[in-house]
Simulated assay, not measured.
Amino acid sequence: MTLEHRRVVITAAGRDFGRTLALRFAGLGAEVYLSARTLEGAERVRGEIRDQGPDGVAERVHAFACDLTDPASIRAFAAAVAERTDHIDVLVNNGARYQHGPDLLSAADEDIVDTLASGAAGTVLMTKNFLPLLLKSDRPDIVTMVSGCGEAGHHRSDAHASFYAAKSAQAGFTEILSKRLRSQGVRVISLYPPDFDNHDPLSPAWQEAPRSARDPLTAQSLVDCILFAIGQSRDCFIKSFHFEQA
Rank of each mutant, 00 (worst) to 15 (best):
M1I: 12
F77D: 01
I176E: 11
R37M: 03
L104T: 08
F237K: 04
A159E: 07
S35M: 03
L191H: 02
A205N: 07
T2R: 13
V61K: 12
F173K: 04
S162A: 15
G53F: 06
G47D: 03
P102L: 13
V81M: 08
L227N: 02
V61S: 06
I88T: 01
A26I: 09
P102G: 00
G101E: 09
V90H: 02
L116W: 05
L104I: 15
L116S: 06
Y164M: 11
C236I: 14
K167P: 02
A76S: 12
A79E: 12
L21G: 04
R6Q: 15
G119T: 07
F163G: 06
R214Y: 08
A213W: 06
D70L: 05
A120T: 10
R139T: 10
D111Y: 00
Y98K: 07
D16Q: 11
D89S: 11
A213K: 00
D141R: 09
A152R: 14
A171L: 11
E31A: 12
E31M: 08
D141S: 11
A213M: 08
H100R: 15
Q170G: 01
G14H: 09
S118V: 00
Q52I: 08
D51A: 14
S178Q: 13
I88Q: 01
A36T: 01
I74W: 09
F64L: 06
A159Q: 09
A82D: 11
G101M: 04
V45P: 03
D197L: 14
V146G: 07
A42E: 02
L217S: 10
G14D: 12
G53L: 08
S147Q: 07
V223N: 04
C66K: 02
A42H: 05
L191G: 03
N198P: 01
P216Q: 05
